[in-house]
Design a protein around this nucleic acid. Structure first.
Ligand SMILES: [Mn+2]
Ligand SMILES: [Mn+2]
Ligand SMILES: [Zn+2]
Ligand SMILES: [Zn+2]
Lengths: 149, 149
DNA sequence: CTGAGGTTTTGAATCATTCTAAACACCCAC
DNA sequence: GTGGGTGTTTAGAATGATTCAAAACCTCAG
C-alpha cells in the first residue's frame, strides 16, 4: 500500500503542475506517490498495478495520462532501454542508467558535472543539445544487493 | 538503385556471417548494401523501400530477419531513440548519436577513447558493462548541411 | 536423385501505446 | 443553486512496429 505524499512532495507536485495550468488530482497524487515509493523505474503497467492497490477504480489510460503530464512538466523522466516498455524515474538529479541484463533491474548512476561537460565537448560546432541520455547495459557482480529504496 | 557490394564489403559480410554458420544470400547482400549506401540510420521500413528497388520480391519479414542477423553477428548496430522505430547503423567505430529534433535526422558523433573511459569510471564497483549507449537530442544550427555520405 | 538445414515468404498474432468519445469534477458567473 | 466551461478520467477501439507460425524454397552433402 502506497504512502501518501509528504507536504513537501505534494508541494513539488502542485508547483510543477501549476506552471502548465494543471491541477493536482487524486489520481495524479497516487501515481506520483507510487513513483516516489519505490524508485525501481517501473513500467506503466507496474505503476498501474501498484497504484490500483490504493485506488481500485484507477484506469490504465489515466496512468498513461498522468505519467505523460509529469514528463511534460519535468517532474519525471522517461527511461527507454532498447525496445522494452518505457520506464519512469522521479530522480531529477543528472544521472545515467544501468540496465542489469540478468535481473532486468535498472540502476541510477550518478553523473558528475565534469563528465557531462566532457560529453558535451565531443559535439562538433553547430550541435545544440537539449538532453543527453546515457545507458549502460551489463551485469552486476554479486555483493550488489543494493536494495534501492 | 543500390550499388553492389565491393569485394571488401562482401568479404566483411561473409566473415561476419560465417562465424555463426550462416551464409551470404542475395537478400542479405542487398540489405547490407542498402545500409552502406546511405548511412542515414534508416528504419526497417526505409531499408525495405530502398532494397525493394533492387530486389522487388523482397519481403519485409526478410528485412527484419537480415537486420537481426547482422546485429547478432556484430556487423550493424541498432539505434533507438525514445519510442521511435528502431534505426540501423553500419558504423562500427565507437560513436554516439545525435538526434536532430527538427529534421528527425540522426548524426554519428565520434567518441574518443578518453571519453569512453571517463564514462566507465563513473560506475560503482560491481557493475560490469558490456555496452554503452549515448544519445544526444537537440537541434542543429544552420551551416550544418552535412550530407552524410 | 534425396534429405537436412538454413532461409524466405505470407499472413496472422502480439502488445505497448495512442486515440476517441462519453461521463465526470470543479469552478465561476449569473 | 444553476448552467457552462474547462480540464480530467474512463472504457474501449485503433494503431503500428515487431514477432511468430507455417509452408515453400534453396543448396549442398551423401
Ligand atoms: Mn549483453
Ligand atoms: Mn527538445
Ligand atoms: Zn533514474
Ligand atoms: Zn551511427
Amino acid at each position: 500500500m502506497i504512502q501518501n505524499l509528504s507536504e513537501h512532495q505534494r508541494e513539488d507536485l502542485l508547483e510543477a503542475l501549476a506552471q502548465g495550468g494543471q491541477k493536482v488530482t487524486p489520481q495524479r497524487e497516487v501515481v506520483y506517490a507510487v513513483l516516489l515509493a519505490k524508485r525501481d523505474h517501473p513500467t506503466v503497467d507496474e505503476v498501474f498495478q501498484r497504484a490500483r492497490e490504493s485506488m481500485p477504480g484507477l484506469s490504465l489510460a489515466t496512468v498513461y495520462n498522468c505519467l505523460e503530464t509529469f514528463v511534460g512538466c519535468g517532474l519525471v523522466r522517461q527511461v527507454n532501454h532498447e525496445r522494452e516498455s518505457t520506464r519512469y524515474c522521479p530522480n531529477l538529479a543528472p544521472h545515467a542508467h544501468f540496465r542489469d541484463e540478468s535481473t532486468g533491474r535498472v540502476h541510477d548512476i550518478e553523473l558528475p558535472a565534469h563528465v557531462l561537460s566532457t560529453l558535451r565537448s565531443i559535439l562538433p560546432n553547430g550541435f545544440e543539445t537539449d538532453s543527453i541520455e546515457i545507458s549502460f547495459h551489463g551485469h552486476t557482480k554479486n555483493s550488489r544487493t543494493h536494495t534501492s529504496n
